[in-house]
């Protein structure tokens, strides 16, 4: 559960505050005794370059922009009202949520067998599979999106259509490119490692004796998976789903390049509002809604992971 660590980690300086002794002693303990201070540079960096701009952007979403483009008072929630009243915008919201859910569910289903092979296979198999999963990360998302454009191309010359037509599996070329299917396929490809790696890490922590004990007690292999492996790997599954959902919800490049008008997502709309329409407050509103969705999913997964039984698994 490495992803969560930064959120639960203590902020330096809070730990020693309760002990009352000389300021020098406090400082020494903080600096010498505890390694917490080592995250200080990162914290400063994030504050300046991430938290401050992010908060500023969120503030924009409740401000008004005058005709000269200046953003300021009065404070208003009218942008949020507008977002939820115009079906064009809510449609994009639902598309975003739908694509993200479908992507994370399919990723989870595909990732289980891969993660199991990764953990239980012999060294050679493990290395090769790892390479297959990790290698695409070396290629930029944009390049990979263009790759999918070639494969999914809608005419009879699109690689997939060409193969399927020649195999006689289809008689008409499929219209895959510029559809939600294309976005799901592209997102799956790009975010798959984020599902496999936490899952493999969780599966790797399961004592193989547990599965063997289940078998000797009379469970066939599929029941062992459902009753033992699956529940014990939930921490990894929850982490993976959260990651993939968050990343696909915030996707920009994939829907922009292979999504087409029918599958534009919130990220693309933010860009339109800010770059094309130059409506900073409304762009900020959409961005804030996106952030809230991702935060909600993360909060939900933290809750799940904090549940009694999952805590037992993680021990």
């Amino acid at each position: 559960m490495k992803v969560m660590d930064t959120e639960t980690g203590k902020i330096p300086g809070t730990a020693g505050a309760v002990t009352r002794d000389t300021p020098g002693g406090w400082l020494r303990r903080q600096v010498v005794g505890s390694p917490n201070w080592m995250i200080l540079p990162l914290l400063i960096f994030l504050t300046v370059f991430f938290f401050m701009p992010a908060i500023k952007l969120m503030l924009f979403s409740v401000m008004t922009q005058d005709p000269q483009g200046r953003i300021g008072t009065p404070l208003t929630l009218s942008h949020y009202v507008r977002f939820f009243q115009v079906s064009l915008y809510t449609d994009v919201l639902w598309t975003t949520i739908r694509i993200s859910i479908i992507t994370s569910v399919i990723a989870a289903i595909l990732a289980y067998p891969v993660a199991i092979v990764l953990v239980r296979g012999n060294i050679m198999v493990t290395r090769i599979v790892t390479l297959i999963i990790i290698a695409p990360l070396a290629v930029s998302v944009v390049v990979r999106a263009y790759g999918w454009q070639l494969i999914l191309g809608n005419g009879p010359t699109g690689l997939l259509n060409y193969v399927l037509l020649n195999l006689g599996l289809i008689s008409e070329p499929l219209a895959l490119l510029f559809s939600p299917v294309a976005v799901v396929v592209g997102s799956l490809h790009i975010f798959f490692p984020m599902m496999v790696l936490p899952l493999a890490s969780a599966l790797g922590k399961i004592d193989p004796n547990l599965e063997q004990a289940g078998r000797t007690l009379g469970a066939p292999a599929w029941k062992v998976f459902l009753r033992i492996t699956l529940p014990l790997s939930l921490p990894g599954l929850v982490a993976g789903v959260t990651l993939v959902f968050s990343l696909s919800a915030g996707a920009y490049v994939i829907p922009a390049l292979i999504g087409g008008p029918s599958s534009q997502m919130l990220g693309n709309m933010v860009e339109q509002q800010i770059i094309a329409v130059y409506d900073w407050p409304f762009g900020a509103t959409i961005a804030t809604i996106l952030v809230l969705i991702v935060l909600a999913i993360n909060a939900l997964s933290m809750r799940l992971l904090g549940g009694r039984r999952i805590r037992e698994i993680q021990k």
């Binding site: 004796n209 063997q212 698994i313």
Partner: peptide, 10 residues
């Protein structure tokens, strides 16, 4: 019976 008991922790 396994050496590490192999009880299902969940």
């Amino acid at each position: 019976l396994f050496q590490n008991y192999a009880l299902f922790p969940h």
